[in-house]
Design a protein around this nucleic acid. Structure first.
Lengths: 205, 205
DNA sequence: GTGAAACTTGAGTCAATATTCATATTCGGC
DNA sequence: GCCGAATATGAATATTGACTCAAGTTTCAC
């Protein structure tokens, strides 16, 4: 949620002055709010420019279209989520701890930025290629971490990629249920309980 | 995918003759295809009536609006998925087996009815109340099964509802990745590998 | 067989809103 | 303080597609 506007704008429309960069940033922030609250189709360009405090035409100085802006936003946010989780996990001692911390960080993130969660998920129906790219990158990184942990003997042998998808799916749904819909448990509690499930397993012992 | 048209139409618009019921069924089937292929917003009423082989006006004889039809469809499909999985699971000996069979059935279902998967997920952004209801029911039923299995000592103690959400999330993402996006593994293989993860756990032993 | 209810038709209405563009303003280098 | 480039403006355009409705056709109870 910090580096908005870097690679967001297509080459020929990129701002050339400080004023322009400021305007682009205002537009991206306004767009995140507008898309987050109203969804892609309900969102109106006039809504975005209104929130940003600029005229309608200004939008088209910097963006080709509503969809192009949306794509740029999804990429920004994909980056932001993955970075947020990766940073939180850095402090973890081993893989199981990393899972716990990463999941807690993810749930907390959905709680603090529900609009961001919504925008990424809606991309599935608005810009599917970007959506797939988001989860493919996420899964690929995840699988690498699992492979490394396996090599260190921290976790049992198993298929890295499939495990990554399973764990991501779990996280996304827990984020939706306990981060956005209801908050009857803290991020930490959700993470503890869920990671207990995947680390110890369901089987009675 | 069989009982289309039962509670789908609002009272005052319900068909009163066999001809009418047939037309409603044709419309619902056409709508499932149109929405599945093009998504809610791209889908056009003329597209639906075209596929169904009826005139545009006929649509409004039986449905209040595009969105009302969409809601009806989501409810039908919610029912269909849950029923499909529940039936498959009936043959299972114990809970772990039920998990395996249920997941395989779910993946197979997404593979055979990708349009159905898409419609349910898109409901998140078109008819959120119906979407929530779908997963809340799914989770509630799932949690009941887990509680029963716990009582029988088939699985370790743990929080039923959270486990249900975690397992559902896992299933949905595995269905998306291995059922719809790519098919590099069979439904059975996906289910075996994923259920091994949740039954045995990640921890090295 | 008949008449009213149920059903079907598709051209026309209408609102919404993404995008364009001609014009006006501001900026930064000199 | 001047000039061309960069920005900003918002009224006008153009498309799209959901929904209406008045007029026709079919069904079926009697």
């Amino acid at each position: 949620m910090n580096d908005m506007g870097q690679a967001a704008v297509s080459a020929d429309k990129a701002p050339r002055t400080e004023r322009g960069r400021r305007t682009v940033r205002k537009l991206l922030e306004a767009a995140a709010r507008e898309f987050g609250e109203r969804g892609f189709h309900e969102a109106a360009i006039t809504g975005i420019t209104g929130r940003a405090g600029v005229a309608l035409g200004t939008f088209y100085t910097y963006f080709e279209s509503k969809e192009e802006l949306f794509r740029a936003l999804v990429r920004d946010m994909s980056h932001a989520v993955r970075q947020h989780v990766a940073e939180a996990v850095r402090e973890a001692g081993d893989r199981i701890a990393a899972e716990r911390i990463g999941l807690a960080a993810f749930i907390a993130f959905t709680r603090e930025h529900p609009e961001l969660y919504r925008i990424i998920e809606e991309a599935q129906f608005v810009a599917e290629d970007v959506y797939r790219e988001h989860y493919r990158s996420f899964a690929a990184g995840y699988a690498r971490n699992l492979a490394a942990a396996r090599a260190r003997g921290e976790i049992a042998d198993g298929p890295d990629e499939l495990r990554a998808w399973a764990l991501i799916g779990m996280s996304v749904f827990l984020g939706m249920r306990y981060g956005i819909w209801d908050r009857d448990l803290s991020s930490r509690e959700v993470a503890d309980l869920a990671i207990d499930l995947v680390s110890e397993g369901l089987r009675a012992r």
